Each structure stands twice: as structure tokens, then as C-alpha cells.
Simulated assay, not measured.
Amino acid sequence: MRHLLAAALLAILTAFSLPAAAQQARYLISADPMTDTPPGVQAWRVQYWTINGSGTRFAVTGIVAAPREAIPPRPRRVIAWTHGAWGVAEKCAPSISPNFFNATAGIDAVRSGYVVVAPDYIGLGNPTMHPMLVGPDTANAVLDAVRAAREIPGAAAGNSFAVWGESQGGHAALWTAISARSYAPDLRLVATAAAAPPTDLAANLREGSDKNARALLLSFTLHSWSTLYGFSMDGVANRTNQGIIHRLAQNNCVSFDKKPKLGTILGILTIVRATKNKDIAKIEPFGSFARANSVDAARVPGPLLIAQSSKDTIVAPAVTRKFAKAVCRRGTGIRWIDMSGDHGASARDSAVETIAWIGARFDGQSPPNDCRRI
């Protein structure tokens, strides 16, 4: 008995003396099997550890999906699916939505043998403010989700991964590519795909032709940044309209299959009028923060795929094309996919080509370069 007590005491003392990095080597907190999955798909609702750009630790959530078949002799290829805007409230987490599988284009990759890791990001599904369009925070959550997936035996996830995102998730995918080597050197990023990605945040919030969607997304962003960082909205709207901005963000999640409530419609119309001639690029500290979290074309590594609809009313096609040209000027080739559908279908409309392109990158094939026709 004395030997057992001594061993237990030694284990406790060793744990307290370990460096913080060693104590946090495990990322997965829990993985609960899901029963309501598509045919041929097994999935887990996961909780895992991540940190934001300031080093604060958070327990966050997501879903890991894999083929429902015997574990292969080699680890499976991984795609990190980075979702578009669902909102900024805790209740807006994709992983708790009954519509998750229908609304998640990335799940299509499971049928091709991939493990799909779908993080909620910080603040969705967990009780803290979601850092909307904050690049480093989001990238960390994505990379740590890939790490956590490796700890689920049934997933058989490997260290090599691609990242693929839509809309807000396109921004997340590009930032994940920027951060991967420095933040997660234990992982190997093989490809990055972004459908309708916000890149120049101020321009995207200013130039989308759907003024109502633009007002709602601006409300999400202003609420997030002012709550997290204490930014004053006095330069954007009066106190009454600031209250409307906060309520729109707190009470609404994005849904493409439901009509908004009357109060939401009236709130959006009010913010459309209140911000008609406002450009956050010229309103500090929002302008500086938007520039800091825009995507620097010089920092995005290849191989890179961008899919953009010429009829997108939310992410202005001209802004995306300008970004792509800047990437090309830096010498990084791009696979460019032109589409003509609406914004909400960007990833679904380009899914077949994107999954095939990702597969070719895993296979080691030379990536195509469409820079001459962008």
C-alpha cells in the first residue's frame, strides 16, 4: 500500500512540475458518437482545447466525421471544413444544429474517404464572445480541431490535412494556411481551398450589393469586436442604433431556409439607413482592426484554390478577384473556379472540382495555375 501511495504522490507532483506545453499535449476533451448521421458516415460531437491570439485557453466544440468502415492500415487524409457565417451567439454553433449535415458542403468529402473536421470556432457552442473574422483566433481553433481529431481512434485521422472553407470560412481557411506552419508544425498542410472568401474586410463589408445582408453581417462584426475589445461604436451609430446592432447579433443566427422575423427585418432596415454612408475603414479603431485581420496576399502559401461566383451579392466578386491577382503577383499559382450561383451555394457549387483538386494535391500532383485568366 505504501508503494501505491508513493507512486500516486509522485504522479501528482510530476504533473504539477511538467511544463505547460507538456500538460496540454492532449487536445481532445470528449468525443460523443452521433446517431443521426448520413449513410456511410460516422461522426462525433467533440469538445477540445484551443487558445486565442492572446494565449487565453478555451474549451470549444465541433464535429469530426469519417467513413463508416474498417480502420485503414494507414491514417486517413483530413479536410478541415471551415464554415461560413452562422451568427455570433453561442446558440448559432453549427454542431448543435439539426441541419448540420445538410448545410455542410464539406461532408461530401467523407464519401471520398476523408476525415472531415468541422470546428465551431471560439464562442459558438461555448460561453464566450465569438471573434467574428478575427484571423489568428479562428486559425488556432481550426488547427487544434485537426489535432484533436487524431485522438479519436475510430476516425484514424492523420497529420496531413487540407483546409476548405466557405464565406466567413473562406477567410478562416486562408488564415489557417497563414498560421499552420508556425502554430502547428506537427501538422502538414497540403492544400487550401476558399469559396467566396472575405479578404479585404472593410471592402467586403462595404461593397456587397445585398445591403440587407451587409447590414446584418456588419452588426455581427461590430457586436463581436466591441464586446471583445471594448471598441466604441459612437463613430458608427447613435446609442439607440447601437442597441439594435447588439440585439440583432445576440438574437439571430443565419438561416437560408427560414424567413426572418418582423423584428429582425425592421432592425436590419434601421441599420441599413444608419450605416448608409459609413465606411468602417475610416472609423477607428475598427479600420485598423479590419486591416489587421484582412488576408495578406503575400502570406498565403500554395497550393491554393479560390471559387467565386460572378453574381455573389454578399462577397463582392471584384474584391476576391483583386486579392487573387495580388496572390498571383507574389508568384503563388491559383486554381480559379468561376461560378454564377448565389453566395450561399458557393461551396456546394464548386464541391466536385474542389474535392478532386484536393485529392490531386494529396497525391503529389503538380497544381494547375489559372493566374493568366483571373
Rank of each mutant, 00 (worst) to 15 (best):
H3W: 13
A6G: 15
A21L: 11
Q24E: 14
Y27L: 09
A31G: 01
P38D: 06
Y48N: 05
Y48W: 04
I51G: 12
R57H: 02
A59T: 09
A66D: 08
P72H: 04
P75F: 03
I79M: 00
W81V: 01
H83W: 03
G84I: 01
V88A: 12
A89Q: 05
N99Y: 11
F100K: 03
T104E: 14
V117G: 10
P119E: 08
P119M: 12
D120N: 11
G123C: 06
G123Q: 04
L124D: 00
G125W: 01
L133K: 05
P136E: 00
D144S: 03
E151C: 06
G158K: 07
W164A: 13
E166I: 13
E166D: 12
G169T: 03
H171E: 14
A172N: 08
A172V: 02
A173H: 08
L174K: 08
L174D: 09
W175F: 11
A177Y: 07
S179Y: 15
A180R: 02
R181Y: 04
Y183G: 04
D186H: 03
R188I: 13
L189A: 02
V190I: 06
T192E: 08
T192C: 03
P198H: 05
P198L: 08
T199D: 10
T199C: 08
N204Y: 06
G208I: 08
D210K: 07
A215M: 00
S219A: 15
S224R: 04
W225T: 03
Y229N: 14
G230I: 03
G230L: 03
F231K: 01
G235F: 13
R239I: 14
G243H: 10
L248A: 11
L248R: 05
V254P: 09
K259V: 06
P260S: 09
L262A: 15
L266E: 09
R273W: 13
K276Y: 11
K278P: 00
D279S: 07
E284G: 10
F286S: 04
G287Y: 05
F289K: 12
A290L: 13
A290V: 00
A290W: 02
S294H: 08
P303E: 01
A307K: 01
A307M: 02
Q308S: 02
K311S: 13
I314E: 11
I314L: 11
V315Q: 06
V319A: 10
K322F: 04
K325D: 12
A326C: 02
R330S: 14
I334H: 06
M339G: 15
G341S: 10
S346A: 15
A347W: 04
R348H: 07
D349R: 07
E353A: 12
I355T: 11
I358C: 00
F362M: 07
Q365K: 14
N369S: 05
N369Q: 00
D370L: 01
R372N: 14
